[in-house]
Write a protein that binds this DNA or RNA. Sequence first.
DNA 1: AAGTATTACAACCGCACTCCC
DNA 2: CGGGAGTGCGGTTGTAATACT
Length: 328
Amino acid sequence: MGRPPCCDKEGVKKGPWTPEEDILLVSYIHEHGPGNWRAVPTNTGLLRCSKSCRLRWTNYLRPGIKRGNFTDQEEKIIIHLQTLLGNRWAAIASYLPQRTDNDIKNYWNTHLKKKLKKFQTGPEEHTRDGFSASQPMPRGQWERRLQTDIHMAKQALRDALSQEKQSYLSELKSSNDYCSNAIPAQSSSTYASSTENIARLLKGWMRNPQNPSQTNSAMTQNSLNRMSGTDSVSSEGTPSKANDKDQHIPCEAFDSLFGFESFDSSHSDTSTQSMSPEASLFQDESKPDSGDLLPLSLLEKWLFDEGANQGKDFLSDITLDDSTANLF
DNA sequence: AAGTATTACAACCGCACTCCC
DNA sequence: CGGGAGTGCGGTTGTAATACT
């Protein structure tokens, strides 16, 4: 007898989430916290399977998610880690706390794969020592590999870190001003946390609740995104341009609606200490160490930690450049 | 301007793993 | 210890948006 489906196939809605569903889900999680996904559809009245709810939360609604373009820095890190870990997107994502594994996976499949192919005109995709990305090694094996390869990882990542640190830091700094200031014009990479997603979503939704094109179930996620940005209409009714999409988004919109402080990653530099309990809860639920640490320093910390585990000679191996060293 | 191809990404599916009874 | 439930993860698909002809 096979395993029963995670939910009844009948009466379960599929496809893009509507703003109403998002709001239901977010408010439920706000109240009860994430987890026990099985109970979510029942308790919220959502006609979604528990899995779908979890996915929606972890991939889109969860606080601290950075969306939009990947920076060169992130690209390099992903490439390095993919080389080391294979398609272990969750593992890779854990070193890019603001990105979801799904996001990274998509980005790899749509961008990086092609990019690498351009450079690797050779036969099989990479295979440093015979392991192909399409044939990931067993877990125990790759962990052992990872340990033995830590030196190489360190080297590769250090290269990426030292090259990109400055630009990355300035970018992070910019993103930290997100709520209080307009997003910098140079920001081709959009930082749209779930807070903004929902806030914008609500803004548009409440402004035009009768607009069937925006509120009915046919509304797609993409249209949601547009509502939150490209296609959004300012309070004066002037359509905003795509490039303006991240400007002046008040985090307070969401806060006031749900009654808790913004758990947006843009406030992450203030750390969970200053967060509301709810926000902390969300942060805790998020990926390990998510949000509160610079992804970059997280990575470096990882390197150091790994190094510490590897043995004392590891650290002596590291010759960080000045800018990197100053981080600590 | 219209049709077609390509790209991007949200969401789904199914297997694997962990935990609890 | 075994089995079931819940969850995590990676691969894949569907479709809207965009680019190209």
